[in-house]
Write a protein that binds this DNA or RNA. Structure first.
Lengths: 338, 338
DNA sequence: CTGAAAGCGCTAACAA
DNA sequence: TTGTTAGCGCTTTCAG
């Protein structure tokens, strides 16, 4: 039996049917102290009418919406998808819903999405920032609406954040490659304005420097520029790569494809190691060695941090750094280590 | 400069500052006819106060929320992620936000998420149902809240839906495999209660029947049961597979892994074709042949259908069927067709 | 074209 | 414990 939205039963209807006052019905709804039998009457009435509280009205009054916003640059990235999944789960467990928006990596879109979310009275926000050079959005947040960033970390912002050991990840990866006797390892990345990119490059440089070898970094502003031609020119002709360290998932995919176009097989003709694991990386030939990020955990921790804030917890911003792990398969030069 | 949530400027503040009545300010907000100079004064006031309309209040009054709900079984599936992405874009273009929930393929979770969404006064719902044997949720929708299903199609439901040519997809794929001289083609699928599974199996059977060959279908209730041991027992020992047709992405991944555990290489030792394309399917060795679904388009069309309904369009339910395409790479038995 | 006033569904003073 | 009564921020009759 359908409920008519235009005439959905209200709490007043429930109260009338149960023959109690509106307030009493409200108290029952909120599990406040109410006479035993009235509780029963009210609950019966709710049942009979198929009553559903109007969260909008509830939120309007209470100045909260039981909704959090989440903004990511790109849902197609498996890392992101997994993080979103985890956030969603934690939110649900806390009785919250998540309003998802994607920025496409564009700060302006990101800002406009945030404005839209704030207008909907979200209680909190989780964002994987599109630009981490500066705090690009906390000016949009009303006092009382907390935000936590994940993946990226903002400069000059006092927000909670969850990141991974980007630097250590690439440092170890690079060191491993060096251990295979590789010298002209080229780091390929995109969007140099991102924290993750900077950190990963820094880790790479550190490892190269420690080995007394000149670092070779090839970055593009935007992933779209990472074409086979660019690979050939920059990475091979110019830098004479004898190994590749790809700094994120999209770069990995594009590099893999690009290499093939150039008639090379990643991992065989040119050893390769990639930041970010993904389904089937282990099924490539040779299997791709990666630095794995705990995507679900990132999402879970970000959400947990946010909900602790919402519950009125601590004041000083916290920064959580989760460990990456080096997964050695074959493409780095190891043979059937798995 | 931060805005205080507790004391965020209201329309009344704007009106006072602009020295007009509340109603006039409201009219400006809604682009109704208002005196030119008053419009300017009001807009200036809004600007100065950093006024943001409270969508909750707006929605409460107007009985709508400018939000749609979306429920999917599994965000990690790239097909789903892409569809969500597209829905999000269309929603944004229409000034709507999307509240995302995932059911994990569980009907009860699905129902409870819908109840939650309805309580938030969503204006519409897009869902990839967790079970398509019957209409499992439209009883939860208040009159006036429309739903459109995508991917799956519900039995006995008069909802708008967007699906793909599942049957034709597997029929063509099977025919192609048969064309390579393969006979003991085994279709591997999961969740037989799903429309997509049924349809894909039907397409497979049709092609086998047309060729006068006994069909060999191996289904598991849940993807978790698709283990290497199961593959060995059911698919190889029992059915003596000489080719595999995997019916969805998860099955593909699990089959690929399972085959490797059994010491076989998909596409080389046993030809394989998979429903659902994904990043890097083309980078496997041999490259995986697939039936590709237009994921983004599915999402876009589902959202479009929904918004047309919201704008009060037609009454009779519509069913959109989008074309799949057979992408022949190598694993089906073709060699370097790409 | 504009203003006053009444609510949307709910919660929270404040009394009783 | 309960009921009465204001609102939350906005839209919208209904007069002016």
């Amino acid at each position: 039996m359908a409920i008519w939205k235009s005439q959905a039963p209200t709490l007043l209807d429930v109260a009338r049917l149960a023959d109690v006052s509106l307030k009493t019905a409200s108290r029952v709804l909120n599990n406040a102290r109410v006479n035993e039998d009235k509780v029963i009457r009210v609950k019966a009435a709710m049942e009979r009418l198929g009553y559903r509280p109007n969260e909008l009205a509830r939120g309007l009054k209470a100045q909260r919406s039981a909704a959090i916003g989440m903004i990511v640059p790109n849902l197609s990235d498996p890392f992101t998808a997994n993080a979103v999944n985890a956030v969603q789960e934690v939110a649900r467990a806390n009785g919250f819903v998540v309003i998802l928006a994607s920025s496409g990596g564009d700060v302006d879109v990101e800002r406009s999405e945030i404005v839209s979310l704030v207008g909907r009275q979200i209680d909190g926000l989780i964002v994987a920032p599109a630009d981490s050079r500066k705090d690009s959005f906390s000016d949009l947040l009303p006092n009382g609406v907390h935000a936590v960033t994940f993946d990226q970390q903002l400069r000059n912002a006092d927000l909670d954040s969850v990141t991974v050991t980007n630097r250590r990840g690439t440092r170890e990866a690079t060191a491993h490659l060096l251990g295979h006797g590789l010298k002209r390892i080229v780091a390929i990345g995109a969007r140099p304005h991102l924290y993750t990119c900077r950190e990963r490059v820094a880790g790479y440089r550190a490892a190269m420097k420690a080995a007394g070898i000149e670092p070779r970094v090839c970055l593009v502003d935007h992933e779209g520029m990472l074409t086979p031609a660019w690979l050939k020119d920059q990475v091979f002709d110019l830098q004479q790569a004898d190994a590749i360290l790809s700094l994120n998932w999209v770069c990995t995919i594009l590099s893999l494809r690009g290499l093939r176009e150039l008639g090379k097989t990643a991992g065989r003709d040119v050893p390769m190691l990639s930041f970010d694991d993904f389904d089937l990386a282990d099924m490539l030939t040779p299997a791709l060695s990666v630095v794995k990020q705990p995507a679900e955990m990132l999402g879970r921790e970000a959400a947990t941090l946010l909900f602790e804030r919402l519950k009125g917890g601590r004041v000083e911003p916290r920064t959580l750094v989760l460990p990456t792990s080096l997964i050695l398969r074959e493409s780095c030069g190891c043979r059937s280590l798995s």
